[in-house]
């Protein structure tokens, strides 16, 4: 039975995180330092130490998930704790600041930390929404299999087109060669289909036209079909229409697959590098505080 990492062991780490927040808030409310609340009171140092250790442990998820032989908890348990304790860090670190912010390396570390947490939260939302859609769209095929099937369709279409006038083979071949999906990060995430096709016009002149979702290809075949008077020819064109329609739905699934997979990954490209920026600024924060004590 599949269980979400959010539900892991009856939300055990949610309760851990809530307890941590509760204790931190309670201590902050009770604590009346002689100076304005800041990171340098005993509670400030305590919260800061907890926060820094949390950050180091949260970062260690990247190591743990690669250690396949590790027996230190399950990766799912780690992810569950990572999410909940990562969110608790918002409370711990904010109380550590004593709500004092400025244009300095200390607030930089805080802002970077919040960026990491918000990007992680975005990732959680993605992981709650997309995996089901991903497998529904794949319907037990891998992306490679779908691409292979498209190639097979093209091959079969070419074989059929061999028995039709030359412009058919040309159209099918150009449709295959000018298929442009994916490409840049934005194209992948937006699911853009920048395919083109080179089609013979009524005057016999070849023209390259955009062909998103095989639109022009199918339209051109339909036009050829309506003009066909020969039964055998009609049957062949009809078969091409079938193949291209299949090609369209396969292409759509491939694009959608890449789009969903992209959204499932893209937040990590913020989450991970900014985590390392955070580690750098965290070291600067801790050392500088004692350097200019």
């Amino acid at each position: 039975m599949h269980q979400s990492f959010l539900q892991y062991r009856g939300k055990r780490y949610l309760w851990w995180a809530l307890s941590l927040c509760f204790v931190a808030v309670l201590a902050y409310a009770w604590h009346q330092p002689v100076s304005p609340p800041n990171g340098g009171t005993w509670l400030g140092y305590t919260l800061g130490t907890i926060g820094a250790l949390l950050i180091l442990w949260l970062t260690a998820l990247g190591v743990r998930k690669r250690s396949y032989q590790s027996a230190v908890g399950t990766v799912q348990g780690w992810v569950s704790a990572h999410v909940y304790l990562g969110l608790a860090l918002i409370v711990v670190a904010t109380l550590h600041t004593g709500f004092q912010f400025g244009w300095n390396v200390h607030t930089l570390a805080y802002v970077l930390m919040m960026t990491v947490i918000v990007s992680g939260l975005f990732g959680v939302v993605m992981y709650l929404r997309f995996p089901e859609r991903l497998s529904a769209n794949r319907s037990s095929q891998t992306r490679e299999q779908m691409l292979q099937e498209i190639a097979d369709l093209d091959q079969r279409a070419l074989r059929i087109a061999a028995n039709l006038p030359a412009e058919f083979a040309e159209a099918i071949a150009s449709n295959r060669d000018r298929t442009r999906i994916g490409g840049t990060v934005l194209d992948i995430l937006r699911g853009r289909d920048r395919s083109q096709v080179s089609l013979a016009g009524d005057d016999g002149v070849l023209q390259v036209v955009p062909n998103p979702a095989q639109e022009h290809m199918l339209e051109w075949l339909g036009r050829q079909l309506s003009r066909s008077t020969d039964a055998e020819r009609t049957r062949r064109i009809d078969e091409l229409v079938n193949l291209m329609a299949s090609r369209r739905s396969l292409l759509r699934r491939v694009i959608e697959d890449a789009r969903i997979a992209g959204w499932l990954q893209v937040w990590l490209y913020v989450h991970v590098p900014i985590t390392f920026a955070l580690l750098g600024s965290l070291i600067a924060h801790v050392v500088s505080v004692f350097l200019y004590w």
Binding site: A151, I181, I188
Partner: peptide, 14 residues
Amino acid sequence: AAAPLAPVLDLSVA
């Protein structure tokens, strides 16, 4: 099997 299409669909490749 025909040679499959090889579009860039992975963020790391992109």
